[in-house]
Amino acid sequence: MRELTRDDVFAAVKGGSVFASGGGGWVDHGLEIGHAALSIGRPKLLSVEELPDDAIILTCTAIGAPAGRDWQMLGKDYIRAVQLVIDHYDGKIAGVMTPQNGMSSTINGWLPAAALGLAVIDATGDIRAHPTGKMGSLGLASSIDYETIQAVAGGRPELGSYIELVVKGTPARTSNILRTASDMAGGFIAAARHPLPAKYIKEHAALGGISIALELGQAIIQAEPEGPEAVLKAVVRKTKGKILGRGKVISKNVRYSGAFDIGTIDVEVAKNVFRLHVMNEYMAVDDRSSKRLATFPDVITTIDAATGLPVSVGDVVEGMELAVFAIDKSRIPLSASVKDPTVYPEVEEVLGIDLQSYAFGKEKQNYA
């Protein structure tokens, strides 16, 4: 156990931005929520092994798409979502965790933890960011035996879009309801879900996920004074990832639909063209001949050549010089969430590409 600091806020945002895979929130939001947490309390980071098996852990997150319009998530909304679950749960919550790393999502639970006297658990539902709640649901996405509680809070009162909602039921049904609530609130909303015993987290989560992001962030911060190339090298060295290629963005076709950003981004790399498939985050990369180069749950990130720092899908523009970076799934802890075959079909249908057989059914070529 250790107390989280302001240095950790910066490191979490820097490292989380790599694992954000083009999504995972916003840098400014992550810094704002992280500093707010430290202004009202002293959140502590705990390994799940430090808790008894029956201690209950809650997942804190945000649901939506960065391109959504007229959304608003304030710090109090994260706290309110957790409080709503606490109010409707017949038991005591000991700690909170995040379903994913990201530009702000690494810090998802820090503010509710500080405000409500809970621990921040060093585990993630997925080491990288992902588009659907089911992909961070710790293998429960298709369960009909587990009744979950999920709550959301957020929106703009002045527009009449503020929503508070608590739902109980199967993870699949309730997750779809919350996605609709996010869209109705303007495109993003704070959420809390899935109270689960520590024993289950120990067996199904990506353990140490927060520490991994913090350590990467620290390496980035140390390299920044030496320039963008030094930052890129630090990221590659620390993660054992790979620059798939560098080039100019020649096309961006991403649209907002139902609280998702969906589409493709094409990057001209030497005499080739990489197509990045987007559903909030980068889910796959193909080359001009449709050869698959990386597939979720690989980490896939676009890095601005001018700064050496990750750039989100929403900030990518045509003409930008990018490095396309990936970390193979063999080099990151994998949770039960991404090993669950039921979480893939809806994303595959939206994107019109195969994910699951590349992820776990056959080897990718020319990538290690």
Rank of each mutant, 00 (worst) to 15 (best):
D90G: 08
D70Q: 13
L46Y: 15
S39R: 12
S47G: 14
V96Y: 01
D70Y: 12
I86G: 02
G68Y: 00
T59Q: 05
A67Q: 13
L51K: 02
A65D: 00
I63V: 11
Q72D: 15
A55Y: 10
A62W: 03
T59N: 06
Q72P: 05
L46W: 15
V48T: 12
V48N: 08
I63W: 01
S47C: 13
G75M: 04
L38C: 14
I79H: 01
D54V: 03
K76Q: 12
R42E: 13
I86T: 05
V82R: 02
R69N: 09
Q83D: 12
S47F: 14
L74S: 09
A65Q: 00
R69L: 10
I93H: 07
D77C: 11
E49R: 13
V48Y: 11
V96N: 02
G64T: 02
Y89A: 07
V82K: 02
A65T: 01
Y89E: 05
A62P: 02
G64V: 02
L46H: 15
P66Y: 00
Y78Q: 07
P52I: 14
R42L: 08
L74T: 10
D90A: 11
G64E: 00
D87P: 01
G41H: 11
D90S: 15
K44P: 08
C60F: 09
I57F: 03
D54A: 07
Q72C: 14
A55D: 07
Q72L: 15
D53P: 07
I63L: 07
I86C: 11
G64L: 02
A94I: 05
L58R: 00
V96K: 00
G95C: 04
D53Q: 09
L51P: 03
W71M: 06
L84W: 01
D70L: 10
K76D: 05
A65L: 04
L38D: 15
E49H: 14
E49A: 14
Q83K: 15
R80S: 09
V96S: 02
Y89L: 06
L51C: 07
G75K: 04
L45S: 12
D53C: 03
A55K: 08
M73E: 11
P66T: 03
I40Q: 12
V96H: 01
H88I: 07
R80Q: 11
D54K: 08
M73W: 01
R80I: 04
D87K: 10
W71P: 09
H88W: 06
Q72I: 08
I63P: 01
A62C: 12
P43F: 13
I86P: 02
V85K: 01
Q83M: 13
T61S: 08
S39T: 15
A65V: 04
Q72S: 15
M73H: 03
D70V: 07
W71Y: 13
E50G: 11
S47N: 15
K92M: 10
L46I: 14
S47D: 14
L74Q: 10
I79Q: 05
W71S: 07
G95I: 00
P66H: 01
G68N: 02
K76P: 01
Q83T: 12
L74M: 09
L84R: 03
D70T: 05
I56H: 05
A67I: 12
D54Q: 09
A94G: 06
I93M: 01
P66M: 09
L38S: 15
A81L: 04
I93C: 02
C60G: 08
